[in-house]
């Protein structure tokens, strides 16, 4: 399955599952990135990492390594 790490800027996806058992996974769940949440990648930092995502109207930045624990189903079409 694809992870958030691979989602390109401007693309949307639906969260399928989160890798649990890690502090990052727990933090993402607490922030509301639960299965079924729609999110999109809005920005990539100048050096390629971290990325910024948008979900439920809020914006969060996370490192690509951390995004690896978010499994997604990509939606077609642009978020913008």
């Amino acid at each position: 399955m694809n992870t958030l790490r691979e989602l390109r800027v401007g693309h949307r996806a639906i969260v399928a599952s989160i890798e649990t058992g890690t502090i990052v996974g727990q933090r993402l769940l607490a922030l509301g990135i639960v299965p079924g949440t729609r999110l999109s990648v809005t920005k990539v930092a100048p050096l390629g990492d971290p990325i910024a995502i948008e979900f439920n109207g809020c914006h969060v930045s996370l490192r690509r390594d951390e995004a690896e624990g978010v499994f997604i189903k990509e939606e077609t079409g642009s978020a913008l």
């Binding site: 990052v24 993402l28 922030l31 914006h59 969060v60 930045s61 996370l62």
Partner: peptide, 9 residues
């Protein structure tokens, strides 16, 4: 260490 999951308010 804690994760670098940072809200962009």
């Amino acid at each position: 260490s804690s994760p670098f999951v940072l809200e962009l308010p």
